[in-house]
Simulated scan of single mutants.
Amino acid sequence: MSLAARLRTGESVFSAWSLIPDSQTVELVAGLDFGAVTLDMQHGGHHEDSVLRGVGAVRLKGKHPVVRIPVGRFDMASRALDMGAETVIAPMVNSVEDARAFAAAMKYPPVGLRSWGPSFAMPRAGASDAQSWLANENANTVAFAMIETRQALAALDDILAVDGIDGVLVGPSDFSIAWSNGATMDPALEDMMPAIASIAQKARAAGKHAAIYVVDPLLVGRFHAMGYRFFALGSEGAYMTDGAPAMLAATRGSIKG
């Protein structure tokens, strides 16, 4: 089942977040108990070659490959899909014009302008029928427009109305900076929580998906109650930081005397 299909059922999907552009590291992360792995090209070290190789590593583990492209690199959205990604996250979508450009890169005609060339994507998905791929790929790919600024919030209704935008993903760190007019960076800022809730409500009302990056896992339940169903969590550094102390504590605790 594709990630798009899982989200349409209302299932909660948890994505790992990969910053390190190394396919072996990506494969290790994909082996963890996440449903998806996001390769970050915006703030992470991922680039075109590491995405090409990393998507294969994610699929090898039976997980859903997701790519966050750099700001404004809508051409990379098409390339990520052709490399086998199922979902693309576009940061800083601040206007309906941004949303239309992103959707055009993500979807085949008549919805968008995506060029044909799934030379890697089809075999990696186990597909061989080109006509079937063309007929179903628009529904099987997810275009997440990131909502991170006051401009994006003001344009949210218009962004959600764009055909080819499948959902929105909130970046709470940048959103907190925008919300506080540059005074603070706090992804758990209480003052912005009503706005965060309204984004999910509007997305769901428009028949679109609501997603969010989560710094504190204890907030997931609160965001789930708001209507969010795709949750991106942590990164390799956080997984090592959380796992190593538990291993060392168990090691030291096993020594008698």
Rank of each mutant, 00 (worst) to 15 (best):
H64S: 04
S198L: 15
I69P: 04
V162M: 02
Y213R: 12
L233P: 03
R222L: 13
G253E: 00
S254F: 06
T87G: 08
Y108G: 05
S173P: 15
G227A: 06
E86I: 06
I89G: 06
T38A: 14
A244F: 07
D22S: 12
F14V: 14
R8P: 15
L134A: 10
V96L: 07
A152I: 01
W116E: 15
N136V: 11
D75N: 04
P109S: 01
G164N: 06
G62V: 09
E190M: 14
H47W: 15
V71E: 10
M122T: 05
E48P: 02
V88M: 01
F230V: 00
H64R: 08
A246M: 09
F144P: 00
E27F: 10
S254K: 03
G171V: 01
G45R: 05
N181G: 10
G234E: 12
A145T: 00
R68K: 05
V13A: 04
S2Y: 11
H43A: 02
A250R: 10
T241H: 11
R100N: 08
M76L: 14
S78R: 15
S15R: 04
G257Y: 04
I255R: 07
G84P: 03
A57H: 10
D49E: 15
A101T: 15
V51A: 09
G257V: 06
G221H: 01
H64E: 09
A4C: 02
M247E: 10
A30S: 11
A244R: 13
L160T: 03
A178E: 03
S18F: 07
N181K: 13
M83C: 13
A225V: 12
A125K: 15
A121Y: 09
A205M: 05
A104S: 10
M185S: 15
A135E: 14
L160C: 00
A103Y: 01
E190L: 13
N181V: 09
A104L: 06
I69D: 00
I199S: 03
I199C: 09
D75S: 06
F120D: 15
W116Y: 10
A197F: 02
E137R: 14
G164M: 01
G171P: 00
P187K: 10
P245A: 01
P65W: 00
P65T: 01
D40M: 05
Q24E: 08
A125G: 13
I177P: 05
E97L: 11
A154V: 04
I89M: 12
W179Y: 15
W17G: 04
N181A: 13
A90G: 07
I20E: 14
A183T: 12
R124Q: 09
N138H: 02
A90E: 09
H224I: 12
F34D: 08
V96F: 05
A195T: 08
R59M: 15
D186M: 12
I20D: 13
N94T: 04
